[in-house]
Design a protein around this nucleic acid. Structure first.
Lengths: 181, 181
DNA sequence: CGCGCGGTTGAAGAACCTCAATTCGGGTGG
DNA sequence: CCACCCGAATTGAGGTTCTTCAACCGCGCG
């Protein structure tokens, strides 16, 4: 039972023959996974991308806290459910969007989680490698490279060693499929 | 806020240009979506596949019930979290499994939810069309048809108008990728 | 210096899609 | 009762998207 205070980690599962699927990235302020209130074992693995500082909870204490305070219960349910909603958005991406849309949406989503307000020129730390993007979005690293290169050539983004800059927010949203995030 | 008592329904979203992604099928005994305890609006649509009989709850009453009884809270959290876990399994399917694996796993999963214990020869009502399978698994109906035809020719399954029979459980599990469901 | 990780690029192929024609079965109207 | 019709499934041909394999580059680091 842990909340991330600093750094970035991700949850993933590996299927037979070594294919890897990343389930989510955890950023500061977020639970690794709310499931641990109920579960003892995990069907996934967790790995840190950067050095990470955690805030640990005793499971039973958290359970008591949720019981004792109605507001706490409500906000914990809120967390569980918005985690589920994020997973469902991901399902839509994987099932029914092209690789360009997926990658554009992923970059926009990470920017938003890093405090982006929507303006062009926003720049933030981005420690995620192409292999992670590929494993998050059901693609190969090679294909991610091609799409990212295309975005860069079209001046939608500027991608440094560990920083990403949204250069043309409008065009990137277009590439993401227009509406929503 | 509703539980399905009879029949089958599904939740889905449509993205621009009409592509459809099915998020889940609801079977008897299951919530349409546990999210409604916290949410007022839904980002998805629901459609019945067969005639459906529902059991409706008043949201505020359910909230009070959850607060009043620790066991109720625990089992509701259990439901939320296992819904999330199902979505994550789906993400792995969509991201990192072939169309044959996805379809085989989907059929096995539906059989299990219909009370299947694992033996060959089990047969159950299956009102789902190929288009639904396609929209659940991120494929086209045409491709689903090809894979299903292949399964049928290899005598893994027998698919009637509205019933499905697991003819060769072992081979179907092999097609599903070996381990787990 | 050399090694390794991450990224880029090209060529060839596999998986899946699109379009379109055809079939099959169940229901409905004449 | 039969003709028709409609939704659902099948099948073929050809195309696109993404993968695979492999070579190569650039850069930070021991």
């Amino acid at each position: 039972m842990a909340i991330i205070r600093e750094g970035v980690a991700f949850r993933y599962v590996t299927v037979t023959d070594g294919r890897r699927q990343i389930l989510s990235f955890g950023m500061p302020g977020e639970f690794i996974s709310a499931s641990f209130v109920v579960r003892d074992a995990a069907y996934f693995s967790v790995q840190a991308l950067t050095p990470v500082r955690l805030c640990l909870f005793e499971k039973t204490e958290l359970q008591q806290f949720i019981h004792s305070d109605p507001a706490a219960l409500r906000s914990f349910l809120e967390i569980c459910i918005s985690e589920k909603e994020n997973r469902e958005a991901q399902i839509v991406d994987l099932g029914r969007r092209t690789s360009e849309e997926r990658i554009a949406r992923f970059l926009l989503h990470m920017a938003t989680r890093s405090g982006w307000k929507g303006e062009s020129g926003f720049s933030f730390t981005f420690p995620i490698r192409q292999q992670h993007i590929a494993d998050m979005l059901g693609l190969t690293q090679v294909h991610v490279s091609r799409v990212i290169s295309k975005f860069r050539r079209s001046a939608l983004i500027v991608l440094g060693a560990s920083t990403l800059k949204i250069a043309d927010a409008y065009a990137l949203r277009q590439a993401a499929g227009g509406r929503d995030v």
